[in-house]
Amino acid sequence: MNEIKRFIESELKRCAEFFPIVTILGPRQSGKTTLAKSFFSDYSYINLEDPEYFELAKNDINAFFSIVKTPVIIDEVQRVPELLSKIQVIVDKEKANGQFILTGSFQQGLKSAISQSLAGRTAILNLLPFSIRELNSAGFDFSKDEFLYQGFMPRHYSENQPIDLLYRSYFQTYVERDVQTLLNVKHKNLFEKFLRLLAGRIGQVVNYESLANDTGVSKTTVTEWISVLESSFIIFKLEPYFENYTKRLVKSPKIYFYEPGLASYLLGIKNPEQVSRDPLVGNLFENMVILEILKAQFAKGLEKSLYYFRDSKGFEVDLIIADGRTIIPVEIKSASTYDKDFSKNLRKFCEFAKNSLSPTVVYSGNLELETEGIKCINFKNCGNLID
């Protein structure tokens, strides 16, 4: 099968031309290594998952760099963050751009180490699993339910790995290895229960106390677990938008998954037909649409600038895309038949949010139109909102 082109490639090329180091962050199996090795095919390659390289890097940095010849790709650099100080010394001496391509799948400790050692020396890009636009450009075109069931992991599309095996393996590997390493979880079954509870609350305002009670752990533990899940690209938060429209606004974030297919797996969905019957289909669809827009931002090297709006009376707009001083309000509906009521919250919001631009409804139908200044588009085109 031909390699699927990643839309982030042009930004990757630009960053390598102007920075001595490019750091690519993203979930495990999102395609970071494939992208780096194919785009920088003449670079040497070091994988810190390899025990031999790991031990050498951990125990003798000078010996490690005696065998590492630049330009080089160093995979999973978060495993030995101590390397970053030495990399700083090397790039300051060599004064050449594009010398190091670093990848990492855990951002908490890595971002802290980068800010201390590599400030001003590295560009940071975020690579998530395939976007709908990337898959469409490669000839993969599926329905809403099929996308939500199978997700976007490259291994499924490049190796035709069965969905049930892919997510079972991903889930088990993450819980049994990564989480044990990061958290030293004593009761693995409780953490598994917690992940499934989170999947059942996609798109809901997070309630730490309720999650703690339902899982059977402390609120402090829930807070710590969410932090690690966020840092390791399993979940992300959508923060509420504030613009002094009213003092009575909801202030807690919502939780979404970086991979809708994993969320469907955790909910026990076993085929595309079950998706449309699942009571959370609207939440899953909302997750996918927000994620597609986030992928479009990351592909351009932009920081996440997505929010939601809700006041204390329950009035809500699903998504706010901040673009400088203007915002794009977005309503997300999983229905496939257009209804003029889809835009009523957008009209109300735009009455008091005068910095609104291009209010848009995203739904699963094929009819695309604009009426009374509000656009209605198919979900496969929602990434275009960032263009």
Rank of each mutant, 00 (worst) to 15 (best):
Q107T: 13
I235E: 03
E3R: 13
P27L: 13
D323K: 15
V185T: 14
P279H: 07
N345P: 10
Q172K: 12
V362S: 06
L83C: 04
S334I: 01
F152R: 01
E146C: 00
K270Q: 12
V72F: 09
Y174A: 02
I74H: 08
N378A: 04
I235K: 00
R121L: 05
T360N: 09
N213T: 10
W225S: 03
S364N: 04
Q99A: 07
S158E: 13
Q297L: 15
V250S: 12
G98Q: 08
E94C: 02
F152G: 00
K69I: 11
A113Q: 03
E82H: 07
L211P: 01
K69Q: 14
N384K: 14
A263K: 11
E176D: 13
I293S: 08
I114L: 14
Y53Q: 06
Q180M: 12
F342A: 11
T220D: 13
Y170E: 06
Q116D: 02
A296S: 15
N283Y: 11
L102H: 03
L346T: 08
H156T: 00
R155M: 04
L249K: 14
I114C: 02
T326N: 14
K270S: 14
Y170R: 01
V362W: 04
I87N: 06
Y149P: 01
S232P: 10
I226E: 02
Q180F: 08
D387K: 14
Q180E: 11
Q297H: 11
F18D: 15
Y265V: 01
K375G: 02
E243F: 08
T23E: 04
N271P: 09
T122G: 00
L102I: 03
I327H: 11
D387C: 01
K270V: 10
I269V: 15
F54C: 02
P20F: 12
L118D: 02
K300S: 09
T34F: 10
I101K: 01
E192V: 12
N189W: 09
Y307W: 10
A16G: 05
N47Q: 05
D278H: 15
S105G: 12
F152C: 01
I321P: 01
K247T: 11
Y208W: 05
P81F: 13
T173P: 02
F194V: 01
Y256Q: 06
T173K: 08
I163A: 04
S231N: 10
N160Q: 07
R277L: 13
V275I: 15
C382R: 05
L110M: 08
Q107W: 00
Q107G: 06
F152W: 00
E9F: 12
F233M: 07
P51C: 05
E49K: 13
P260W: 04
T173L: 07
K13E: 14
S227L: 06
F65T: 06
I327T: 10
E303Y: 12
P129A: 00
F64Y: 09
T34M: 08
T360W: 07
N355A: 12
G261Y: 01
E192A: 12
A63G: 08
K237H: 13
G151L: 02
G268T: 05
I101E: 05
K380N: 09
N381G: 04
I74C: 10
L84F: 09
F233E: 09
G98T: 11
S232I: 03
F7G: 07
L128P: 00
I74Q: 09
M288F: 03
N384A: 08
